[in-house]
Design a protein around this nucleic acid. Structure first.
Lengths: 135, 135
DNA sequence: AAAATAGTTTACGTTTACGTAAACGTCAAG
DNA sequence: CTTGACGTTTACGTAAACGTAAACTATTTT
C-alpha cells in the first residue's frame, strides 16, 4: 500500500479508518455541507482535497468549533473570488476567529499550569508516603 | 461597591452577572455536582471558593471539557488526603489531561496559522481591488 | 396591602452531533 | 449463484447542556 497522502482517491472506509471516525459521521458532515465528494454510481469517492477538508473539520472540532462554525470557515475559503464586500466580511470573521483562538490558547495554558502544579503536589504526597512505608 | 474578588459572599445574581452565565446554568452545574454553595434559608450563597470553582468550570468549558470531565478534575483536587492508590490514579489522570491539552494547543496553533495565512491572501486581494478602483 | 424584585423547584423543550437499526444495492470470490 | 464485504438511504434514538415556562416563596419598595 502506498503512502496514504499520495493516493488520489479514497473510499469512505479509507478515511473513516485513517481518521478514526465512523462512516456515519463522515456522511453527516456531508449532510451539513462540509464536504461533497464525487460519486461513482452511488458510492462516494473522496479526493485528496476532500481528505484535507476532513482533516480541517476534525481539527476544527478538536479546537471546539461547532460544525456550523466550520462550515462558515470553509465557505470563507471558497469566497476568494467573490465580490470585494464579501472578502471584507470574510477578513473580519477570519480575524475574529484568530482572536478567539488566541484567547483559548491562554485558557489552555492556564489550565495546563494549574494541572502541572497539582501534579507536583500529588507527587510530593506520594513521595512522602513511600518514605514512610520504607521505614 | 468593593472589588469583586474581595467580597466574601455572592448571590447567584452576582456570579451570573460577573461571568455572563444564566442562573439556570449555575444551578445546573450544581445539579451535576460541580459546585455546592451554602444555603441561607432556601437561597444559595456562594463563597469565594465557590466563585473560583465557577471560574474553573467556565475555563474548562472554553477549553472544550465536558461537565463530566470537569467534575472529574474537581474531584481530583479533593482527593489530596485520600489513600495512596487514589493519588496515583489522580496523578495519572492529571498527566493525561495535560498531554491532551498540549495536543489541543498544537491544533490551535495550526488553525491560527492557517487562518492568518488566509487573512494575508484576503488582504492582498482587497488591496489589488482597491488599486484597480483608484485608477 | 399591593406590587415589584429576586430567589426557588419542577418539568418539559431544544439544539448539536452523531449512534443505531432496518432494509436494500453491488460486486468479487468461492 | 449465493454469500460476504462494503456501500447506500431513511428514520428514529440519544446524551449533553442548557432554555423556557409555570407556579411558588420571601423580601423589599411604594
Amino acid at each position: 500500500m502506498p503512502d496514504k497522502a499520495k493516493k488520489t482517491a479514497y473510499s469512505i472506509a479509507d478515511l473513516s479508518q485513517e481518521f478514526c471516525v465512523t462512516h456515519r459521521a463522515i456522511r453527516f458532515y456531508e449532510d451539513q455541507g462540509l464536504i461533497s465528494p464525487e460519486r461513482s454510481g452511488q458510492a462516494r469517492i473522496y479526493s485528496p482535497r476532500d481528505r484535507a477538508r476532513l482533516a480541517m473539520i476534525l481539527r476544527g472540532k478538536r479546537v471546539g468549533f461547532s460544525l456550523a462554525d466550520i462550515r462558515e470557515m470553509i465557505n470563507l475559503y471558497d469566497q476568494e473570488d467573490g465580490p470585494a464586500k464579501q472578502r471584507h466580511v470574510a477578513l473580519k470573521k477570519c480575524m475574529e476567529r484568530i482572536e478567539a483562538l488566541k484567547q483559548q490558547r491562554i485558557d489552555i495554558d492556564i489550565t495546563i499550569n494549574e494541572l502541572e502544579e497539582y501534579c507536583l503536589i500529588l507527587e510530593d504526597l506520594i513521595d512522602i508516603n513511600d518514605i514512610q512505608k520504607a521505614q
